[in-house]
């Protein structure tokens, strides 16, 4: 063991200074380290002379009462917090529930059932209109064009005669042909 190691070792033992056999034998042969050790021993003695500071009875009772009041306040605060959070929490939850319920109630009423009814009605109306006005599917420009061609070939006023002379079946046939674009 060299001097540095010994000094570090006894320095760390300060407060509980006891020496191992190695340390003792080093000290026996090293006056410098012995001086260092003696210095540490005297320092330790001096430091341990000072009494440990302690609380007086009065200070302790003062501490206890202050601590008690702080703990009570803490409990009250915590209790109030839970009480208030429950109170306001319940109110908020009720309000949110109402808003939620009314929103979704409204949504269902407007968007789902009425929409279905409306769209169904609209479809039915369109279908009905379509079947009722089956004759009007023919676009007039085509009809005019056919009549004009006929008039060009057979003379003025023949169109009225022609149309008037056509039977329902013939008229239907003509319309279908026009629709199919065969005549044009």
């Amino acid at each position: 063991m060299n001097c540095g190691e010994l000094r570090k070792s006894i320095c760390l033992k300060m407060g509980r200074l006891f020496l191992s056999q190695d340390e003792k034998s080093h000290l026996d042969s090293c006056p410098g380290c012995t001086k260092y050790y003696e210095h540490l021993v005297s320092l330790e003695k001096t430091l341990t002379v000072a009494p440990a500071p302690s609380l007086t009875k009065m200070e302790f009772s003062k501490l206890q009462s202050k601590l008690d009041s702080r703990i009570n306040k803490y409990h009250d605060k915590a209790l109030n917090f839970y009480r208030l959070s429950f109170k306001y929490g319940a109110t908020m939850a009720a309000i949110l529930l109402l808003v939620f319920a009314s929103f979704f109630g409204k949504y269902k009423f407007q968007d789902i059932k009425p929409a279905d009814t409306d769209s169904l009605l609209a479809t039915l109306t369109i279908a009905e209109d379509f079947s009722a006005s089956g004759d009007e599917v023919i676009e007039e420009p085509y009809l005019d064009l056919v009549i004009d061609n006929y008039v060009d070939n057979y003379g003025f006023n023949t169109s009225e005669m022609l149309i008037g002379d056509l039977s329902d079946e013939e008229l239907e046939y003509l319309k279908n042909k026009i629709n199919a674009g065969d005549i044009l």
Binding site: L63, K66, L67, R70, I71, Y74
Partner: peptide
């Protein structure tokens, strides 16, 4: 006091 209160 702070120490004991924090401990509590």
């Amino acid at each position: 006091q702070d120490t004991f209160f924090a401990a509590y």
